[in-house]
Simulated assay, not measured.
Amino acid sequence: MPVSESQQKANQKWAENNKERRSYLSSRSSARSFIRNKATLEDLDELTQLIQERRNMLQ
């Protein structure tokens, strides 16, 4: 379904005004996709360790 020209402009304006948020959402999406679709057991073990380290830093 095509998006109207005014909606395209609004989307572009939002993206320009929210670069950090857009980058955050893109990175989060990539991480989730990797975990769900491509990660091996070794990857998951390493990610679990990295997540725990990050949790400790944030507390």
Rank of each mutant, 00 (worst) to 15 (best):
M1P: 06
M1L: 07
P2C: 05
V3C: 03
V3Y: 10
V3T: 08
V3H: 04
V3A: 03
V3L: 11
S4Y: 00
S4V: 00
S6F: 15
S6G: 04
Q7R: 12
Q7K: 10
Q8I: 03
Q8T: 03
K9F: 03
A10P: 04
A10L: 12
N11F: 14
N11C: 08
Q12L: 15
Q12Y: 06
Q12K: 15
Q12P: 01
Q12D: 09
Q12G: 02
K13I: 09
K13R: 15
K13N: 13
W14D: 11
A15K: 15
E16R: 12
N17D: 11
N18K: 06
N18Q: 06
N18S: 06
K19P: 07
K19N: 04
K19L: 08
R21N: 07
R21G: 02
R22E: 14
R22T: 09
S23V: 10
L25F: 06
L25M: 09
S26F: 04
S26D: 09
S26W: 05
S27T: 11
R28P: 02
R28T: 03
R28L: 05
S30N: 12
S30W: 15
S30T: 12
R32S: 09
R32K: 09
S33A: 11
S33M: 09
I35Q: 01
I35G: 00
I35K: 00
R36A: 13
N37M: 04
N37Y: 08
K38T: 03
K38W: 06
A39V: 00
T40F: 08
T40K: 01
T40L: 03
L41N: 09
L41S: 07
L41Q: 09
E42C: 01
L44N: 01
L44H: 01
D45V: 01
D45P: 01
D45H: 11
E46P: 00
E46T: 03
L47W: 00
L47D: 00
Q49H: 06
L50V: 04
L50G: 02
I51A: 14
Q52M: 08
Q52L: 05
Q52Y: 04
E53D: 14
E53A: 08
E53M: 10
R54T: 05
R55K: 13
R55W: 07
R55H: 09
R55S: 07
R55G: 04
R55M: 13
M57L: 14
M57I: 07
